[in-house]
Amino acid sequence: PGGSDLKSLAKHVYNAYLKNLNMTKKKARSILTGRTSTNPPFVVHDMDTLWQAENGLVWNQLIHGAPPTKEIGVHVFYRCQCTTVETVRELTEFAKSIPGFVGLYLNDQVTLLKYGVHEAIFCMLPSLMNKDGLLVANGKGFVTREFLRSLRRPFNEIMEPKFEFAVKFNALELDDSDLALFVAAIILCGDRPGLMNVRQVEEIQDNILQALNLHLQAHHPDSLYLFPKLLQKMADLRQLVTENAQLVQKIKKTESETSLHPLLQEIYKDMY
């Protein structure tokens, strides 16, 4: 495709991202840096402040489907699941807007989402993070990294690797228009296990990667090797997802009273 086609693809994908993904990096950064007129986020840094946040309706939704728990680590695990499920829903709508996606076999659409959503989530999480914590509840809360580290094992191991990734990923200083194409390229990945029509997926991804490369050259002219650095991040994300899946398996085994949302059960089953 020519340059103008790639530019219009980049614009289309960016618009789909803005339309379907609720918390943009732009919005998150304005909250994290205090450059917004809305109230600053409520800071959760210990059990008391977590309880206050739950009772003060920082979160819009209650935790549905999960058994009630008094254990704080389990509670945080359920909150992570709620956010993940909602983001999977948003990412599915985003994927459907990527040109060519709905023309794939339904089987392949399922496979791409099964393997792609966690990588996509973990590359969007850094938008909500700084080295000290992360925004939650649509920007109304901020949970400190120290608090998450203080949970008992294995729940203290859930978020720390994501913070380590985020600090490095945020150094690339991507904005939402870059992230939109990067997330699309992650979802349209031709080497997911069990794809029926690999070539069809690769053709779509190839277009997206060309659009991303062109977009980065225009948008970050002084950032050398940004495109190959992002390709490397795709491999890092795969590793992060593998480790996350192993941790979820461990929690399932050792924490028998802890339940996993049915959508996440589907995604993790026979994944890696």
Partner: peptide
């Protein structure tokens, strides 16, 4: 794959999914 991923299927075919 369809049997094992009923919710993902439903999400792909409808934008709303009541059991989420």
């Amino acid at each position: 794959l369809k049997e094992k991923h009923k919710i993902l299927h439903r999400l792909l075919q409808n934008s709303s999914c009541s059991d989420l």
